[in-house]
Simulated scan of single mutants.
Amino acid sequence: MTVFVCAGCDAVLSGRLARVALPVHAHQKWGNGLLPVLMEPGTYAVDPEPSGPPWRPWSEIGEDEAAARGVFAPERALSFGPPGAIVIAPGDARGTVLIPDRCGGYCCGLDGRDGPNLACAQCGLPVAARVDDCSLWQSVWFAPNAVRALPDNQPTGRTTGWEWRKWQALPPVAPDGSWDPRWAAAVGAALAHLLAASEGTPVALPNGPVTDTFGHALDALLPAGTPAKTVALAGPGLPARESTRRILLVPRHPRTGERWLAPTTAETVPMPADAWKRLASPDEPLLLPVTGGLPDGVQRDDPLPRYPWQPLRPDWGVFLHTLARIPAVREPWLRGIYDRVKDHPYARPF
């Protein structure tokens, strides 16, 4: 477990936290309403990329310098601030106060546009940005150079093993019938990797949830014809896949972020563990607490499955962000897809 303290005066700024993988939807913008809290209570994640000012436009950076940063397709601007921003749930923050002249936002709250808007209550050092505006996940982002991590050597209670049966599956559909934004982000990121692995040729999808999830988008972005590769699920608890002409959808570990290593030479496409489990175990029953009346072994059949009121639209922002960081995007056919989606982000299938 870790506690974060102010770099200026050592005041405690967080509760005791366990590190987990940075959510794929950490920087997502979705809809025009308020989104829930990004991080689970008692956890934190670290963004390896630079964040915050100074920003430089793509025209000043150039392809070689951007590629050295791990960005291989044009973006409007890149941050040249320090890497390693730390994100926590707002309820896990301690000992901070708002900075009144840095409380900018779009309409419903704060978006961190003015830099750190939280200061250490003890010494006044700007330490973090509170984000809670519409379309953004609610979070607190510690500036990496404003805090220090103090490990307390206490066990986290979270395993680094592949105990996939303990993972929570992500329901794709929200209670109101809309697609869950976390699902749209997970699909958008995986779609970018799927396209790169396809090498621009048609792929065959297995019947069922994988086709339901990716079929519409791949039909729109890849040419028609005889499939050159097949897509399959792989991971802990599933049988091994032995073909080199396969593309395997595999989970990222929810704590470490590591991609599951398939025991073959097949290409792998990572997905967040909760989304992967939903595809791997689509019929897993939702167990609900009940009181009296039901015999042993009988499960309730409610709530009824949720059905969406519109087709799945992968998150185009997450798709572009992910694709820009895959070296294969420099190939003309894939760069063409990137440019087309960037210029027309709401065209099919987005």
Score class of each variant (00 low, 15 high):
residue 260 W to M: 02
residue 254 P to K: 00
residue 197 A to T: 04
residue 64 D to A: 13
residue 324 A to V: 09
residue 315 D to L: 08
residue 19 R to M: 06
residue 329 V to Q: 01
residue 235 G to L: 02
residue 307 Y to H: 13
residue 320 L to M: 09
residue 54 P to T: 04
residue 46 V to N: 02
residue 116 P to W: 01
residue 350 F to N: 04
residue 283 D to C: 05
residue 66 A to E: 08
residue 51 S to Y: 06
residue 337 I to K: 07
residue 66 A to D: 07
residue 61 I to Q: 02
residue 315 D to H: 14
residue 157 G to Y: 08
residue 55 W to A: 06
residue 22 L to Q: 08
residue 122 Q to W: 13
residue 2 T to A: 12
residue 159 T to P: 00
residue 56 R to S: 13
residue 120 C to A: 10
residue 156 T to M: 08
residue 196 A to W: 01
residue 212 D to V: 02
residue 142 F to H: 03
residue 331 E to Q: 15
residue 204 A to P: 04
residue 37 V to P: 01
residue 119 A to Y: 05
residue 350 F to K: 06
residue 325 R to Q: 14
residue 112 G to W: 05
residue 215 G to C: 09
residue 201 T to E: 13
residue 179 W to L: 12
residue 52 G to K: 08
residue 88 I to H: 00
residue 155 P to R: 11
residue 165 R to N: 11
residue 4 F to T: 03
residue 328 A to Q: 14
residue 8 G to W: 09
residue 116 P to K: 04
residue 239 P to Q: 12
residue 237 G to P: 01
residue 71 V to N: 06
residue 335 R to P: 01
residue 49 E to Y: 10
residue 277 K to H: 10
residue 78 L to R: 06
residue 132 D to M: 11
residue 97 V to C: 07
residue 115 G to I: 05
residue 14 S to N: 05
residue 292 G to I: 06
residue 149 A to L: 09
residue 2 T to C: 10
residue 307 Y to D: 07
residue 204 A to V: 05
residue 301 D to H: 14
residue 11 A to M: 07
residue 138 Q to H: 12
residue 195 L to G: 03
residue 336 G to A: 15
residue 113 R to T: 10
residue 282 P to A: 11
residue 318 V to W: 03
residue 135 S to C: 15
residue 273 A to K: 00
residue 111 D to I: 02
residue 161 G to I: 01
residue 9 C to Q: 01
residue 273 A to C: 03
residue 261 L to I: 08
residue 228 A to I: 04
residue 285 P to Q: 07
residue 108 C to T: 12
residue 134 C to V: 12
residue 187 V to S: 04
residue 22 L to S: 04
residue 85 A to N: 09
residue 143 A to F: 06
residue 141 W to T: 15
residue 16 R to N: 10
residue 160 T to V: 13
residue 242 E to A: 13
residue 289 P to Y: 04
residue 121 A to G: 09
residue 323 L to S: 07
residue 210 V to R: 08
residue 167 W to D: 04
residue 278 R to Q: 14
residue 71 V to P: 01
residue 58 W to M: 06
residue 323 L to C: 05
residue 336 G to F: 06
residue 311 P to T: 10
residue 183 W to G: 00
residue 12 V to H: 03
residue 148 R to E: 12
residue 86 I to R: 09
residue 113 R to L: 11
residue 213 T to W: 03
residue 44 Y to L: 05
residue 135 S to G: 11
residue 224 A to S: 15
residue 146 A to G: 09
residue 102 R to K: 15
residue 210 V to W: 07
residue 342 K to L: 13
residue 147 V to W: 03
residue 247 I to C: 02
residue 73 A to W: 03
residue 305 P to T: 07
residue 44 Y to Q: 05
residue 218 L to P: 06
residue 299 Q to G: 05
residue 200 G to T: 09
